[in-house]
Amino acid sequence: MNPIDPRIHRALDGELAREDLPRELRLVVERLEAAAALLAAAPAVAGLEPRVMAALRRPAPSRMRRLVRWFSIPHAVTLRVRPVWSLALAAAVALLTLVPIDEGNGPVLGDHEGIAQFVGRFPDAQTVHVVGSFNDWRTGTIPLEDRDHDGVWRATVVLPTGTYEYMFVVDGERWVTDHLADRLVEDDFGRENSILIVRAARR
C-alpha cells in the first residue's frame, strides 16, 4: 500500500479546495469519491419498523433470563492491562502452579476424621448399602454405586476416627459380610461382622 499525496487527503477532508489541486490529483480525488458514492448509492433494504416494533411490544425478558442468556452466549471480552501488570499476573500464576499444595481436591477433613472406602462385588445386585456401628446399623443411609455396571460396588464416606463393625445389605434384604476386610468378628446373632479402622487423614 503506497501512501498517497497528502493534498488528496486534505481535499477529501475539506481542508483544501480541489481547484487548487493539479489535474492528476483531482482525478484521484474524484475516483475515491466515485467509489464512495457507489457504496452510498447501493440500495439498503429497509422495512425494519414492523419487526422492531413487534419486538418492543413483547414484554422485556426478566433480569434473570437476561443473565442466563448473557452467560450462555459467547462474548468477546477485551481486557486492557498494562504490560507491567500482565507480568505480575503471569508471575502470580506461575507461583500458584509451581508451589505444591498439600491438600488435595477431596473433602476438607477435621483432625479426628478419616476416609473410609467400601468395595464389594455383587454382580446381580440392584442396590447395595453399607450398615454398621457408624450409622447405628440403619439401612438406606449409605448406598454403594456401580457406575461402570461391572458388578463392583463402591462408596467413599468420611467418618470419625475409630473402630467400627459393618456389613453390606444387598437388595435391601440380604446381609453380607465383607470378607475382604482385614478382620472379622462374630456378633451376638451368630453372624460375622467386618471390622473397619478409620484413622485420621491429617498428620
Binding site: A44, V45, E49
Partner: peptide
C-alpha cells in the same frame, strides 16, 4: 408513546442498514 419510536426507525434505518451492511458484508 411507544409507537412514536417507529418515526425514529423510519428516519434512520436506511443509513444504519447501509452502514451495517458495509461493515458486515451481508444485508
Amino acid at each position: 408513546d411507544r409507537e412514536a419510536f417507529g418515526l425514529l426507525i423510519r428516519r434512520y434505518e436506511t443509513g444504519l442498514l447501509r452502514f451495517a451492511t458495509r461493515m458486515l458484508g451481508s444485508r
